[in-house]
Design a protein around this nucleic acid. Structure first.
Length: 477
DNA sequence: CCTTGATCATTA
DNA sequence: TAATGATCAAGG
C-alpha cells in the first residue's frame, strides 16, 4: 500500500482516476517519440530496434510511467483502464489508416476453455481502453507523431455484443479441440490472430486433442479500429445500425440485415421507392440509394458504423433475369501499380476489400432496362472460404508477377476507327475469381508503373462467372 | 478535380 | 453474346 502511494505521488497524474489518466494521455498529443523520450518518467526498457511493440512500450513507460509487464491486468489497474497504442499510416487510399490489428491478450488454450466471458482476461482488458493514435514514420520511428488520444468503453452498443459473440465462438472452438482451425476471418471484431517468434517454434498444446495449434492472441481487427479512427475524424459521417434495429446482435446480424431485403424481393426499384416515399433516384447509384433507404437509414450518404467495423461492403450486382449471370463484373478501388509490385499478399489492400461482402442482386432482362423493370433479387453475404482465399492469393500473385514484368505497359493499337490502349496482362478468362482491368476516370487517366512505362489505372475485379456461382449458391441456402 | 461504385461501348 | 477497354455520375 505504501509503495503504491509512493508510485502515485511520483507521477504527474493520478493513476486511479479515469479523468486524470485521460488528461495525461491528451497531453502527449502533438509530441514525437523523441519528445517523449526527452521527458521520460521511467527509462525505457524496450529500445531494441527490432522490437515491434517498441513505440507502445516507450509511451507506456516514458509517458505514463508504467513499467512494461505481461500481467493479465489492465495497465492502469486501479482505474481498470488498458493502454493501447495504434499506429496509423498512409495507405493506398487517401488519408490515414490503421496499420495493423491491436493485440489484446494472449490466448492460453487450456485456460481459455475454462473461462467465462464475464470474468475472462479479454474482457478485463477490453472494458476500458485508452487509445493513443500515432502516425508511424517507417524511415524514422522516433519521429512518429502522436495524433490523438481518447478513452473507449465496452458499453452497451452492438460492438459489445459482437465482441462477446466473437469471444464465445473462439472459446467454444478451443473447448472442442479445434484451436488449430481458428482463423481471424471467423470473427467480426475480436479475432484470434497468430503470434509468436516464427520459425515454426510457435506450436502449443490445446484441450481435447494431441494436435498442436499455432499460438494465438485475441486482437481487435483493423477494420474495427479503423472505424473508430474514422469516426474520430468525422463523427457525422456515420450512422449506427442499432438505431434502426435495436435488437440486432453479433449472432443474428446477417439475418437481421437480410430480413428487410427479403421482404422486398421481387419488387421493382420504382415500387420500393414508392413504398419508402422517396423519389426514384436516377444515375448509377440509384439501386444503392433505394436499398439503403429500405434498410431504414436516414441518410443515403452516411456510412454504416457497423459495416465499417466489420470491414463489410455492400455491393449491388446487376443480374440477367434469364440465367442469373451478372451483366457486369464488380470492381474494387483502383490501385497504384508502383505500390502493387512491392506489396506483400499478407497486407494487400485487396484482402480488405474482398474480406466480407453483402451482395444485393438487382435483376433485369436487358442491360439498360428502365427502373420499373429492375427487380430486387435474393441478397446474400459472402466471405471467401479457405479454398477461395488460396485461389485469390494465387491469382493476385499472378497479376503481381505480370505487372513486375512490365506487362501492364500500354500500347496504342488501331481498332477500326478508334485507337485504344491495350496491356498484356492476363485476362478475365485466364482466372477463376479475380482479374485486373483498366479503371480510370477517363481515357487520359494514365499512370506510370515501377519501370516508368505508361499504364492505364487498373483495379481488381471479381470475375462475372464467379459471382454467378455465388448467386446460384445463394439459392441453395 | 478526385474517388468510388456502376456501367457503357466496341469488337470479334 | 462474351470479353475487355473506356467512361459515367454523384459525392466530397
Amino acid at each position: 500500500m505504501n509503495r503504491s502511494r509512493t508510485e502515485s505521488s511520483d507521477l504527474p497524474y493520478d493513476p486511479k482516476s479515469e479523468s486524470s489518466i485521460l488528461k495525461r494521455g491528451q497531453a502527449v498529443v502533438g509530441l514525437t517519440i523523441t519528445d517523449v523520450l526527452a521527458q521520460a518518467l521511467l527509462p525505457s526498457t524496450t529500445l531494441h530496434p527490432k522490437d515491434k511493440g517498441k513505440i507502445g512500450g516507450i509511451i507506456q513507460e516514458c509517458w505514463f510511467g508504467i513499467p512494461c509487464n505481461n500481467r493479465p491486468e489492465p495497465d492502469f489497474n486501479d482505474a481498470g483502464i488498458e493502454l493501447k497504442i495504434i499506429p496509423l499510416e498512409t495507405g493506398t487510399k487517401k488519408g490515414l489508416r490503421v496499420k495493423e490489428r491491436t493485440k489484446v491478450c494472449a490466448i492460453e488454450y487450456v485456460d481459455l476453455a475454462r473461462q467465462e466471458w464475464l470474468t475472462s482476461h479479454a474482457k478485463i482488458k477490453l472494458n476500458k481502453i485508452l487509445f493513443v493514435y500515432y502516425i508511424y514514420d517507417k524511415a524514422n520511428p522516433e519521429r512518429s507523431v502522436i495524433k490523438h488520444c481518447e478513452l473507449w468503453k465496452l458499453d452497451d452498443s452492438l460492438s459489445k455484443r459482437v465482441i462477446t459473440d466473437d469471444w464465445i465462438r473462439v472459446r467454444n472452438k478451443v473447448k472442442k479441440g479445434e484451436a488449430h482451425e481458428l482463423s481471424e476471418s471467423q470473427s467480426n471484431i475480436l479475432g484470434a490472430s497468430t503470434t509468436g517468434q516464427g520459425h515454426g517454434r510457435d506450436m502449443v498444446s490445446q484441450p481435447m486433442t494431441k494436435i498442436l495449434a499455432k499460438k494465438r492472441a485475441f486482437s481487435l481487427k483493423p477494420s474495427f479500429t479503423n472505424q473508430l479512427w474514422a469516426a474520430i475524424q468525422d463523427p457525422t459521417k456515420f450512422e449506427s445500425i442499432v438505431e434502426v434495429m435495436p435488437d440486432i446482435t453479433g449472432l443474428n446480424f446477417e439475418a437481421k440485415i437480410l430480413a428487410p431485403l427479403f421482404d422486398l424481393e421481387g419488387r421493382s426499384l420504382v415500387q420500393i421507392a414508392e413504398q419508402f416515399d422517396i423519389e426514384p433516384p436516377k444515375g448509377k447509384n440509384a439501386a444503392a440509394t433505394i436499398l439503403k433507404k429500405a434498410l431504414g437509414f436516414k441518410h443515403v450518404n452516411s456510412r454504416i458504423t457497423e459495416f465499417d467495423q466489420f470491414g463489410l461492403e455492400a455491393r449491388v450486382i446487376p443480374i440477367r433475369t434469364k440465367d442469373y449471370r451478372p451483366w457486369e463484373s464488380t470492381s474494387f478501388a483502383p490501385m497504384d501499380l508502383k505500390e502493387f509490385v512491392i506489396e506483400e499478399w499478407e497486407e494487400s489492400s485487396l484482402q480488405q476489400y474482398i474480406d466480407y461482402i453483402l451482395f444485393i442482386p438487382v435483376y433485369r432482362a436487358t442491360p439498360k432496362a428502365p427502373m420499373d423493370e429492375k427487380r430486387l433479387g435474393k441478397s446474400f453475404f459472402w466471405r471467401p472460404s479457405k479454398e477461395e482465399w488460396s485461389i485469390i492469393e494465387a491469382e493476385w500473385r499472378l497479376f503481381q508477377a505480370a505487372v513486375k514484368e512490365g506487362r501492364a505497359k500500354t500500347r496504342l493499337i488501331q481498332k477500326k476507327e478508334k485507337i485504344i490502349r491495350v496491356s498484356d496482362l492476363p485476362k478475365e478468362s485466364d482466372t477463376r475469381i479475380i482479374h485486373m482491368r483498366p479503371h480510370g476516370e477517363d481515357g487520359d487517366d494514365m499512370d506510370v508503373d515501377h519501370l516508368g512505362n505508361p499504364v492505364v489505372k487498373q483495379s481488381f475485379w471479381l470475375n462475372k462467372e464467379f459471382v454467378h456461382e455465388l448467386v446460384e449458391r445463394s439459392f441453395r441456402k
